[in-house]
Design a protein around this nucleic acid. Structure first.
Length: 598
DNA sequence: CTACTCGGCTACATAGGGGT
DNA sequence: ACCCCTATGTAGCCGAGTAG
């Protein structure tokens, strides 16, 4: 490129006369060509400056945006990826990008690093493919590794750990994949997993990179807010699941994993000591293998309310250590049933639960309310989850329509400032499943959930808070568009989150089923609440297939919906799964066409 | 006069060859 | 493996032109 030829001398202002070097402050780089100090360019122009080709600075909001009242939307502009990085996964490129500003790395080191990372990303993905044989979508492989590679620029030992953890069986990620794989193949090696866990615990010196990372901490801390009950105690303490056994990057992940495992455990009904050092494992969810050590008895015994209310009843069934507790199961259930009835009566009198009992007398109870009010063994859990959910108003609000954030895309980008917390939502779903479905059904659902939920956790675990916020912005933005489509379309349509919570609903769906839009959007309604049992089960199984296995992301099935009065409405439904930019299932759009009786 | 657009200059990152 | 150098590509932003 010859600049001299292009130059138009007439347009050129007279060149300033170079000042003596001593007149420039120290640190200013003088251009050898012009003799003038080199312009200090902003590391990255903001979106507004980028668009208008104006001078930006490194502050956010930048000076210009502050002056123009655009501070709210001032953020880094998007730079085009270099050609040579076109085939390198984004996260790898991203991490190398951050190297640009790391003085510890020389130019050559950066180049070598980028190339190395690109190569490694390919290699580890291939190697890991052997571990994921059934469930995981290709994109998921990449995503998992991308997430891990985000840590690469930190320090050498972190890098080394990440490289090894990509393949190592002791990595939390590989633990997920391994357990999933085992689960699906019905080849059970719980002792290996326990060995893994024991090793994880006994070796605290093992690096745990994501938790060392500040931003991951931030996310974990923000999630942590949902894990406290009204007394400020960790929710895990009240829920009595077994966190911190799996050595995941955050207590949140530990806990979610434990909860899934607990469904499996309670569904199967095996009875063992919850406080034993053995952790539940997804590998043990089928067949005759040793099962997770948790059951209704231990759940109940560990339930503080239960302890407080019925100290004597518990003594009737001391825990045995020889695994013979199964023989007591029927008796335990009988006692629990009695207690349920007692507590139900108390509940009805006190009407404490504002969250689930906010309905007026004229509005029909949704299925959840009915079941929750009948369930008592989990009532304290429910209260805790409910209160923890209320800690974050955005959670409850953003479950519903994008109208909360405004009707314009700009409003969404300006107002969505917190990630959506999926954890409490999954807790609610877990409780709902445990209270509505029979054990065999719970087991089926748990199997389905076990095939995708750990993957969701693994995928999102290493995402930064900004990523999670962006994820939610994407969700709300997409929802805004779908709400428009739904309003134009005559097909009964519902949109729900991957948690199952209804996020948008068309008036045709309300006409078809009798549910009001406000009811469905304002009360954390799960889509399965609107389905009969078999359809709900089919939904979970279908979703587990779609989540990572079926790249088409659409399915057609017969689905029986429930009206508020409990009437069954036969429909044919099409479920279309939408993924977010990270490839994680974000929302499901369901179209329901009634099957008319002959 | 102000705010905005956009052509084109320029700083800087990267690619790659050659020398040590 | 590292350094130096040149070529090339990309993006920041200066400044002229224009619309309101």
């Amino acid at each position: 490129m010859s600049l001299e030829v292009k130059e138009k001398p007439t347009k050129k202002p007279p060149k300033p006369i170079p000042k003596p070097l001593t007149e420039y402050p120290p640190g200013v780089v003088i251009s050898p060509r012009t003799g003038l100090p080199k312009r200090r360019k902003a590391t990255r122009a903001c979106i507004h400056c980028q668009r208008t080709h104006l001078t930006c600075d490194n502050n956010r909001p930048c000076e210009r945006c502050v002056a123009r009242g655009l501070a709210d939307t001032c953020r880094d502009g998007v730079r085009k990826k270099a050609k040579y990085l076109a085939d390198v996964p984004d996260a790898v490129a991203l991490s190398s990008e951050s190297l640009q500003y790391d003085p510890r790395y020389t130019k050559k080191m950066k180049i070598t690093k980028v190339k190395k990372q690109a190569k490694e990303a390919g290699l580890t993905a291939n190697a890991d493919e052997h571990l994921h044989t059934h469930v995981h979508h290709d994109h998921h492989h990449r995503l998992s590794h991308e997430s891990m590679d985000e840590e690469a620029p930190k320090v050498k030992q972190d890098e080394a750990f990440l490289q090894s953890s990509a393949l190592s069986e002791t990595s939390p990620y590989s633990f997920f994949t391994k357990t999933n794989n085992l689960h699906l193949n019905n080849t059970h090696e719980p002792q290996n997993i326990e060995a893994h866990l024991a090793e994880s615990q006994s070796n605290p010196s093992k690096p745990n990179p994501p938790s060392e990372n500040g931003s991951t901490h931030a996310v974990a801390a923000s999630e942590g807010a949902f894990y406290e009950d009204s007394d400020g105690r960790p929710l895990s303490d009240t829920l009595r699941f077994q966190p911190s056994r799996h050595n995941f990057q955050s207590a949140a992940v530990d806990m979610e994993y434990s909860i899934i495992s607990s469904i499996l455990g309670s569904a199967k009904g095996q009875s063992l000591d919850m406080t034993s050092s053995v952790s539940p494992s997804l590998a043990s969810t089928s067949g005759d293998s040793p099962l997770p050590k948790m059951d209704l008895l231990t759940t109940a015994t560990n339930n503080n309310n239960y302890r407080r209310l019925h100290p004597n009843k518990l003594n009737q069934f001391p825990l045995s250590t020889d695994g013979s507790d199964q023989t007591h199961l029927s008796q335990v259930l009988e006692v629990l049933e009695q207690l349920n009835q007692q507590q139900q009566q108390q509940k009805q009198q006190q009407n404490q639960n504002e969250w689930y009992s906010s309905d007026g007398p004229s509005t029909p109870k949704r299925p959840l309310s009915l079941i929750i009010s009948n369930a008592t063994s989990d009532s304290s859990i429910l209260d805790n989850v409910s209160s923890s959910t209320r800690h974050n108003s955005s959670v409850s609000s953003s479950v519903g329509s994008s109208a909360y954030y405004g009707r314009e895309p700009a409003d969404i980008y300006a107002n969505v400032r917190q990630p959506f917390s999926y954890t409490p939502a999954y807790h609610q779903l877990t409780i709902y499943i445990r209270t509505r479905f029979k054990r065999e059904q719970q087991l089926r659902i748990a199997r389905s959930m076990a095939s995708y939920r750990p993957s969701f956790i693994a995928c999102t675990n290493t995402l930064k808070e900004d990523d999670l916020i962006f994820m939610e912005q994407c969700f709300q933005r997409t929802l805004l568009e779908y709400e428009k489509f739904i309003s134009y379309s005559g097909t009964p349509t519902v949109v729900w989150r991957r948690t199952g919570q209804v996020a948008a609903v068309g008036k045709e769906f309300c006409m078809l089923t009798g549910w009001s839009r406000e009811r469905l959007l304002s009360e954390h309604t799960f889509i399965v609440e609107l389905m009969d049992d078999s359809s709900a089960l089919e939904y979970f199984e279908m979703f587990s297939k779609m989540a990572f296995g079926d790249s088409r992301g659409a399915n057609m099935t017969e689905c029986t919906l429930l009206s508020p009065q409990g009437q069954h409405i036969k429909t044919t439904s099409i479920w279309t799964l939408k993924r977010d930019v990270f490839g994680i299932p974000m929302m499901i759009v369901g179209n329901f066409l009634p099957i008319l009786p002959n």
